[in-house]
Design a protein around this nucleic acid. Structure first.
Lengths: 198, 198
DNA sequence: GCGAAAAAATGACCGTGGTCAGTAAGAAAT
DNA sequence: ATTTCTTACTGACCACGGTCATTTTTTCGC
């Protein structure tokens, strides 16, 4: 016999999330302490872990929610008709991933489902992003047609991650994220040009 | 007046690394505890942190050493002349990255230099890999020539990371790593085929 | 050799994520 | 109402990475 979830449960969880969001807004994601969250919510430490597997599970929830919101706004806009328009359309989404090293790390770690038969919110959001981009590619006219749109979209994600990785890295900081991304996408998404000399 | 490094220093550091490697060989990377390392080496905990900034600095050293060794073996072999040969040549390198989730995470986090004007061993190894692949592409005949080889090589790295990410993920486990990698590289490295129907 | 200065090593201590046996609160059964 | 069963909550406790004032060892000028 499975009972309905108690009202109290939902209240407690909501309060934990609320407090966490406020703390993140003030100090950023990396600075979040579980002890501060429970203190702010007025519950014991153990309660936190009754609601979230671990600290990162809360992080996944917070970060994927923000990503999903930004992705939804991108999806509501017009279909981008070229590489530059696509980069611009995805900028808020990628900008958030680039905002904090910790955010990028968590996003990457949870971008795949954590366990068999369980697709977390982060994995869902990443998949939604691929689906959105694939739709753009299929509908727009300017992209190469010898590769299926969803494979191209997966590549866009791969290049985005590569660009962001290098953005966090001193070695290649000379070239900004969007500029690097542009070089990748021109080569990946457009019909090929003539062979280079040499 | 800057003094030479003491013999003792090198001995202690070598012993720490040695013990750590033995523990990793037995229990894997994720299970390594600093306290076990110092106990095995017969030194105090503080000594460890006099030799390594933190636990991950040791991890970077261990993991990048293994990666570099595998990369060197790949570089000693013949130049691969196509997508399948390239995947096969890089398999030991990628296989190690896929061997443990923790290894993959550390490798990614340190694949870029940590600080300005300091290129860590992991970043160096990743760069060496790109250089090696770029050389293969430039020397071999079968790849597209409308994009410079080093950009193509960076793309190979991006697709490898994408494939490995998805390998750790339940959602896409249906398709094995090398098979997925192959689809990406055919689209990325080869001259384009005719447009798909539809 | 000897004394001073630098380098290396020590271990008690701290912060923080995470656990778990025990308790309280809520929802059914009587 | 009272008992029973389930779910939610508690907080002392542990694990483990990391710090730092202090002590030991080494090096170097004399």
């Amino acid at each position: 016999m499975v009972r309905a979830v108690q009202k109290r449960t939902l209240q407690t969880r909501a309060r934990l999330v609320e407090v966490a969001q406020a703390l993140v807004a003030r100090d950023g994601y990396a600075a979040l302490r579980v002890e501060d969250v429970v203190a702010g919510a007025g519950v014991a430490k153990g309660t936190f872990f009754a609601h979230f597997r671990d600290k990162e599970a809360l992080m996944e929830r917070l970060i994927s929610a923000e990503l999903a919101a930004r992705l939804a706004r991108a999806g509501a806009g017009p279909v981008p008709d070229g590489v530059d328009a696509m980069i611009a359309a995805l900028e808020p989404y990628h900008g958030f991933l680039a905002s904090e090293r910790y955010v990028f790390d968590i996003a990457l770690r949870y971008s795949g489902a954590a366990q068999v038969a369980e697709v977390g919110p982060m994995a869902q959001t990443f998949e939604d992003c691929v689906t959105l981009v694939a739709g753009w590619i299929a509908r727009s006219g300017g992209f190469r047609r010898d590769v299926p749109p969803d494979l191209l979209a997966e590549g866009v994600q791969a290049f985005a991650i590569q660009s962001l990785s290098l953005q966090f890295c001193a070695l290649h900081q000379a070239e900004a994220g969007p500029a690097r991304m542009r070089r990748y996408l021109v080569a990946w998404l457009l019909p090929p040009g003539p062979a280079l000399p040499g």
